[in-house]
Simulated assay, not measured.
Amino acid sequence: MALRVTFVAAAGSSSRLNERFEDDRPLDQAGWSEVQRVAPELLPLAAADLRYCSPNPRSRATGDGLGYAPLVQLALRDCDMGRWRGLTLGEAMAREPEAVDAWLADPRATVHGGESLLDFITRVGGWLDTRPLEENFRVVAVAEPSVIRAALVYALKAPPATYWNIDVRALSRVSVTGQAGRWSLRIEGVSPQRARM
């Protein structure tokens, strides 16, 4: 018996370098346009048995815009970044370079006063492992790219440092299949996007 959980990355409009920790900005016009453009491709996922989303405004708006009417799951919230909340990586580096270096090097570090990367991965993995298990049961979850990276690291039982090497683009999707403690990655494709270099 296997469960299929499809993650859809929330829409966004800022470049990777402008991403903010625990960013709670709503979708802008560019984000809405992206959702409308890919909706025909992602709308079939609305037939999932359960539909969830992160509590982040962009995740909720993306799920609603795709017709999923998702239930908010607190376990799918972004990593608690403590005093770095709302900062870009560059801004945090300018303020506390040694602390950022320690955080990037050690997945157990909580130098920002928030959640460690390892705790974040474990929290998201715990959510994944507690989904209902029924034959051919399908779940869709709209989440921030960081949450999806954490879920993939957990599902693949990869070292926590792998988190930094996974690129999840806005409105892309990826699935994991299996059951608690036994997950497999299933590549389903990436939604067409504007060329970004």
Rank of each mutant, 00 (worst) to 15 (best):
V190A: 13
P132K: 11
M197T: 12
T177Q: 13
T110E: 12
R123C: 06
E144N: 15
L42S: 03
A143V: 10
V111Q: 10
V153H: 11
G126K: 11
A61L: 07
G125I: 08
E188P: 01
R83H: 11
L71I: 13
V139K: 06
Y163H: 14
A2T: 14
D101A: 15
R37K: 13
P145N: 09
I121M: 10
R51S: 03
Q36L: 10
P57M: 04
G67D: 03
L152S: 07
V153R: 03
W164A: 07
W183D: 02
R149M: 04
L17K: 13
L3H: 02
A180C: 01
M93F: 12
P26K: 00
A11S: 15
A105E: 10
L74C: 11
L156S: 12
M93C: 11
P55K: 05
A151H: 12
S191Q: 08
P26F: 04
S175M: 05
P26W: 04
L171F: 00
P57H: 07
R196S: 14
A69C: 03
G67K: 01
A180T: 07
M1N: 01
Y163V: 08
V100R: 09
C53N: 01
R85H: 10
I148C: 08
W127R: 05
P57G: 11
G126M: 04
V100I: 02
S33R: 14
V142T: 02
R58K: 14
D106A: 06
V72R: 12
R4F: 09
F120L: 06
D119N: 14
L27G: 01
Q36R: 15
T177Y: 05
V38L: 03
I148R: 08
L66M: 09
W103Y: 14
L185A: 03
A151W: 04
R173Q: 10
A92N: 05
D28C: 01
L27D: 04
D80Y: 11
P132A: 12
Y154G: 02
Q36P: 04
S14N: 06
E98Q: 15
E134D: 13
Y154Q: 08
E91R: 01
P26I: 06
R4N: 00
E144T: 12
E98L: 15
E19Y: 13
L74I: 12
V142R: 10
G113S: 09
D23N: 10
L89N: 03
F7Q: 03
R196L: 13
A94G: 08
E144Y: 02
C53L: 10
M1K: 11
E19C: 02
A158V: 02
H112D: 15
D64P: 06
V38D: 07
Q29P: 06
D101G: 15
L89M: 13
W127C: 01
L43H: 13
L76I: 09
K157Y: 05
I166K: 03
E144F: 07
D49K: 07
W183E: 00
A10I: 00
E188I: 10
I121C: 01
P70H: 11
G113D: 04
P132S: 10
L118W: 11
D28Y: 05
F120E: 00
V190I: 10
W164C: 00
